[in-house]
C-alpha cells in the first residue's frame, strides 16, 4: 500500500444507532431509582475517589446510558463504596447499588 504519512481519523461522536438499549433497560430494572437522575453532579462533588483519581460517577453512568462501555469497568474500580453519593442525591438514586450493578453488568457483558 502507498504510504500516505497519515491515517484516516476515526469518528469521535457517539453513534446512538449502534447502541443496545436492552443493556440500559436491564440496569434500570435492577436499580429503578437510576431513571430519576437529573445530572446535578452532587454525587461526583462529594465523591472521595473523585477528589484524587478523576473518578466521575455521573460521567460513567451517562456513558453507560449511550452504551459506551469502553474503559468503564476499570474506572469503576476506583469507587470505595462509601455510599456518600447515595446520601446526597436529591432524587433518591441508589448510587452505591448502581455502582455494584454496573460493575457486575460490565463484567458479565465483556
Amino acid at each position: 500500500m502507498a504510504d500516505f504519512g497519515f491515517s484516516i481519523s476515526k469518528p469521535q461522536s457517539i453513534d446512538t444507532n449502534d447502541m443496545d438499549v436492552g443493556r440500559l433497560q436491564a440496569l434500570e430494572a435492577k436499580v429503578p431509582s437510576f431513571k430519576r437522575c437529573i445530572n446535578c453532579g452532587a454525587c461526583t462533588a462529594t465523591c472521595s475517589a473523585g477528589q484524587f483519581g478523576g473518578f466521575n460517577i455521573r460521567r460513567i453512568h451517562n456513558l453507560y446510558r449511550w452504551d459506551q462501555r469502553k474503559g468503564l469497568e476499570k474506572e469503576l474500580q476506583q469507587c470505595m463504596l462509601c455510599g456518600k453519593c447515595t446520601l446526597v442525591c436529591p432524587r433518591g438514586v441508589n448510587l452505591r447499588y448502581l455502582i455494584i450493578r454496573l460493575r457486575k453488568a460490565l463484567a458479565d457483558n465483556k
Binding site: 469521535q12 461522536s13 457517539i14 453513534d15 446512538t16 444507532n17 445530572n39 455521573r58 460521567r59 451517562n62 456513558l63 449511550w66
Partner: peptide, 15 residues
C-alpha cells in the same frame, strides 16, 4: 439528528 450530550461533552448522532 446531530446534537451534543453537553453533560458528557460529546457530539452524538441519532436516527
Amino acid at each position: 439528528i446531530k446534537s451534543e450530550d453537553t453533560l458528557l461533552g460529546q457530539p452524538l448522532k441519532m436516527v
